[in-house]
């Protein structure tokens, strides 16, 4: 497998005003400043006036990325989610060549990853699977020898992990 070196990836969670063109402003800002977007997912929040953009950016200068995004008038808040402090998920649809005995083998591998068959073709199987980005990559590697016909991934979405115990006392941070 060819590996491409890339700057470190950072998951940013943006709370933005739910208005036309905000996604364009965010992507334009990143493109203009030369920051590469690895993945991007956007959707509504529980507040109809707000949207959430989860963007995975490849950059050595993540502070600058955050500051430039913050300058956009429609961006209200930005959180950087450390993988260890966040639940990160991607969804993948993957179509694998599978005929004859290969079909059962492919299904066995998929089962281990809790991937569900969502479409059956005469020479292929299509799975839906959700998980951590690393888990999806493992599954891809295991299915690759069978022949991956098509692969569609959602952008990564992420949420910070909640506190596991009641804080003993409040401490000002600043």
């Amino acid at each position: 497998m060819t590996t491409f070196s890339h700057p470190p990836r950072h998951t940013l969670s943006l709370v933005v005003e739910n208005r036309p063109g905000v996604l364009a402003r965010v992507s334009s800002c990143l493109a203009r400043r030369g920051f590469n977007i690895h993945s991007l997912a956007v959707g509504p929040t529980i507040d109809p006036g707000l949207s959430r953009i989860t963007v995975v950016v490849e950059s050595e200068k993540i502070e600058q990325v955050k500051k430039q995004l913050h300058k956009l008038i429609n961006v209200i808040r930005i959180f950087e989610l450390e993988p260890s402090m966040a639940v990160e998920r991607e969804t993948m649809l993957i179509r694998v060549a599978a005929t004859g005995t290969a079909r059962t083998e492919v299904i066995e591998v998929a089962n281990i990853f809790k991937a569900t068959v969502v479409d059956v073709g005469y020479n292929s199987l299509t799975f839906e699977v959700t998980g951590r980005p690393a888990k999806l990559n493992d599954l891809i590697e295991l299915l690759r020898p069978f022949g991956v016909v098509e692969l569609v991934k959602s952008g990564r979405i992420a949420i910070g992990r909640a506190a596991k115990s009641k804080p003993s006392r409040m401490r000002a941070v600043g």
Binding site: G21, A24, R25, C29, L72
Partner: peptide
Amino acid sequence: TVGITMPATKHNYF
């Protein structure tokens, strides 16, 4: 216009 001037303005409106 809004698209063209997006990176040339502090903010713009349609």
